[in-house]
Each structure stands twice: as C-alpha cells, then as structure tokens.
C-alpha cells in the first residue's frame, strides 16, 4: 500500500471515536436524550479520556512493533497517532471544563490543584502540548538532536496518564491496572534508550 493511502487509513481509523461521539451528540439533541445515560457530559469525558489513552498506547507501540517485525514503514505513522493522542486528550480536557464544570474558571483551577488525580491528568496534557506544537518537519529540523530528547517526554506523559487513571479506582481496579501494565511494558521495552548515555538503537523517521 502506498504511504499516502496508509496515512488516510490511519487518519480515518483514529477519527472513528470522534465520529461515534458526534452522531451520539446529534441524536441526543434530536430527542434521544437518554442515549448516553443521565450524565451525557460525564460519559463524553470518560470516552474521550479512554481514547486519548488508547492512542497514547498505540503511539508508544509503534517503535517496538517496527523493531520486532522489521516493518519500518510503521514509523511513518507514529506522528499522526501522537497528534491524535493530543487531540483526544484536548477534547477530554475541553469536555471536562465545559460539560462538567461549565467554564467556572475558579472552580476548574481549584479542582486541578486540590485533586491529585486531576493534577496528574493536567500535567500529562501540558507535556503533550509542546510535543504536538513541535511535531512538524520544520521544528524537527530546527531542534535537530534536541527534538528527539524533547519527544521522549511522551514517556512521562504516558506514565502520568496511568497515575491519573489509577487514582480514580473505587473498587474495580481491572481497567486502570490493565492500562498501567501496558504502559509499563511499553516503557520497559525501551529502558536502554531511556538512559542518557546509551546510543539510539532505532532512529526515528
């Protein structure tokens, strides 16, 4: 498959959760008020958060997958997956602020400071922000070698997502623990390249 066709495929696949969400919102506005249950805002916050995490895991899986399968073309899609991670994380933050707290800034800031699980989620998004901004070829050229070390901040961003999820456990721990194990596994696979002195085994695109 030519790279452009693969790119379109990845783009459409990563857009499916948003398309699902949009059709749900339209149906709710057209009378199916109970489609997402009595707390549609909360359902949307949870849905977008889950997909931000799913795409984070997919992004982190690209380079180990390329290495183990030898399919180096996989690396051509990592940037788009990373940008979709940021996109869903931003929707998540937006939905939380707009649908749950109705843009009450004072309350939003208080909550972010007082509730550790929210603090960790926010920190994760704050890390993703400069990574998304510098994801272009232009910035890659400008930052040269520093670009790579900058984008390794996606590892702590993923770890913070796991903490954000773990801190919300009430009694059912399966999903948060499952996601955390995946994060630890994906970060564990690259433990050597996390050490500053080690050489890059796999060069980025």
């Amino acid at each position: 498959m030519p790279v452009s066709l693969r790119r379109v495929t990845v783009f459409v696949l990563a857009l499916l959760p948003l398309i699902y969400l949009l059709q749900a919102v339209i149906r709710i506005q057209h009378g199916e008020w109970n489609l997402l249950g009595p707390e549609p805002g909360r359902a949307i916050v949870f849905f977008t958060g889950t997909w931000a995490f799913n795409l984070m895991l997919a992004t982190l899986a690209v380079s180990p997958a390329a290495k183990h399968t030898g399919w180096r073309w996989l690396l051509q899609h990592r940037r788009m997956l990373g940008l979709f991670t940021f996109f869903y994380a931003s929707l998540h933050l937006l939905a939380y602020s707009a649908l749950l707290l109705e843009w009450r800034w004072l309350e939003i800031s208080q909550e972010l400071i007082e509730r550790p699980y929210l603090t960790f989620g926010m920190l994760s998004w704050l890390i993703l922000l400069p990574l998304a901004l510098t994801s272009t070829k232009g910035w890659q050229r400008r930052l040269k070698r520093r670009w790579k070390s900058l984008h390794k901040w996606s590892y702590p961003a993923a770890a913070l997502m796991a903490v954000h999820y773990l801190l919300q456990i009430r009694s059912s721990w399966f999903e948060p623990v499952f996601y955390t194990i995946l994060v630890l596994a994906l970060l564990g696979l690259r433990r050597w390249s996390l050490l500053p002195a080690s050489k890059e085994r796999l060069s980025a695109e």
């Binding site: 919102v25 506005q29 707390e39 549609p40 805002g41 707009a98 649908l99 109705e102 509730r115 801190l167």
Partner: peptide
C-alpha cells in the same frame, strides 16, 4: 478526598449543562 461535596448533579443532566 477526591471531589467536592458542596454541589451535586441533579439527574438527568443535559448535554451542555450538568444541572448542578
């Protein structure tokens, strides 16, 4: 410890307002 009890969302919430 993880959230405020000062207000509540009276269900059903509507999409753009949690009805707090």
């Amino acid at each position: 410890p993880r959230w405020s009890q000062a207000s509540e969302r009276r269900l059903p919430s509507s999409l753009f307002s949690p009805n707090r």
